[in-house]
Amino acid sequence: MRYAAPETIEKACHLLASEQGLARVLAGGTDLLVQIKTDVLDPVLVVDIKHIAEVRSITNDAKGWHIGAAVTGAELKEHAALRAAWPGVVEAANLIGSTQVQGRATMGGNLCNGSPAADSVPALIAAGAMALIAGPNGRRELPVEDVMTGVRKLALTKGEIITGFRLPARPKHGGDAYLRFIPRTEMDIAVVGCGVALAIDDKGVCTAARMSLGAVAARPLLVADAANALVGTKVDASALDKLAAAASAACRPIDDKRGTKDFRIKVAGVLARRTAQFALDRAHGKTTQTH
């Protein structure tokens, strides 16, 4: 295995594109190095992107936020303004692993590892994040929900990397949240994960909503029906019932040691309701803690 640490995106894409054998991006390495160690992957080249300034920074302007793909969970948490704007996204990223894993794990890696249970992905989808992509043929953008196409399958072509995520500015009365169900309180993989972002007007009527479920299908899902059940309502009990029913209906889960299909379908509804309530409280200006 060879290791390269280019300082520009162009160089990184070129290295990845021109390698005949298996080449991988190295961000935090918390998935990749485990997979190499356990012989799941045997790349001939790893391209460390952490020496590229663009993928390591968080910036914002009137239009919104740019979060570099290789910003770590710990760095996200320390960014007070981002935490205030998109608390659900930052909290979701901070559910990944332990303090030690947080010191290295990135949202780019979480998405590109291609796990349906990746915690930060439903939160990014709910927030309406765009994935910024660079490749040998230039740059493009994709909604985050279109990046993963199946288990360990991505819509990226050879030599393409994710450079960062673009998030909209937080709406005036907006709020987001991410909750997951795990059998313990720390260090486990989501049985179901749910992200909700919504906005309300001055009268408390929901004007826009997005919701996403993780770990209930081959990839994280954007569930438009569920979110639409909230729009035009005050997110009251009957709207939440409709949201929960639509969430359960969207699930295409598997049975495994963490949970049965039926359990996942049920929990998706319960979690959707709770997550929406947190997002709503935040839209009303309450500072709540989900974890």
């Binding site: 290791y3 640490a5 190295l26 935090g28 390495g29 918390t30 190095l33 485990v34 160690k37 790893v46 460390d48 952490k50 770590t72 710990a74 303090t99 030690q100 894993v101 010191g103 290295r104």
Partner: peptide
Amino acid sequence: RLVCSCLMLGVE
């Protein structure tokens, strides 16, 4: 920053 040294390459 606290990390696991088993999940970081020496060259890093």
